[in-house]
């Protein structure tokens, strides 16, 4: 994991293009796992506009992962395109309950060509550390319920199921 860890860094503005592509892939995979998570037609535009805003937010953590096979100190490392990303947010649960800082792991995605190199686990670990460093008292992550693989990965990282998000369509009757 050390090699993968050193391939993770904070996202920069120069990553915008690659990050937009990665995020659209991430959303596309969720939509594939469950059609109820289908994309809106302007998902790409909105992502392009949202990413620079997110990068400037103090309560948000946006990380990218580079190909661990490339030396992070080597020549050209500065313009190497990210092949993975992760995003987290420091939130608070509704004030009716005891106020608690929740570190939310919102999105984690590794380009399929670069899976199996430890990037996903490294991103989750570093994102968790960053959220805890900003005061998170607990970490949470939501995965599509049909996405067994993502869930198994989180359980291996010490996460346990807390709640289910249920849905009902009213149009179907």
């Amino acid at each position: 994991m050390d090699e993968a860890r050193s391939a993770v860094r904070a996202a920069r503005r120069s990553d915008l293009h690659a990050l937009t592509d990665l995020r659209l892939h991430f959303l596309g995979e969720a939509a594939h796992a469950d059609a109820r998570l289908r994309l809106m037609p302007d998902a790409r535009d909105r992502t392009e506009h949202a990413l620079p805003v997110w990068m400037g937010q103090a309560d948000r953590v946006l990380l990218v992962g580079l190909d661990p096979a490339h030396d992070p100190q080597g020549p050209g490392a500065d313009n190497a395109a990210p092949v993975a990303y992760a995003m987290g947010l420091l939130g608070a649960v509704p004030p009716v309950l005891a106020a608690q800082h929740v570190g939310e792991i919102l999105e984690v995605h590794v380009d399929p060509a670069h899976r199996g190199k430890g990037l996903g686990d490294a991103l989750v670990a570093i994102l968790g550390e960053a959220l805890i460093g900003r005061g998170a008292q607990v970490l949470r992550a939501a995965v599509p319920s049909t996405h067994e693989f993502a869930r198994a990965r989180l359980e291996r990282a010490g996460f346990a199921p807390l709640q289910l998000e249920l849905e009902r369509s009213l149009d179907a009757g």
Partner: peptide, 24 residues
């Protein structure tokens, strides 16, 4: 029983107290 079905699972991991920032 009312026709609702699973969309997402929210998983949680506790943070060991020593890992937290005492100023937060």
């Amino acid at each position: 029983s009312m026709g609702w079905s699973d969309l997402e699972t929210v998983l949680e991991r506790a943070v060991p107290v020593e890992g937290r920032d005492p100023e937060a």
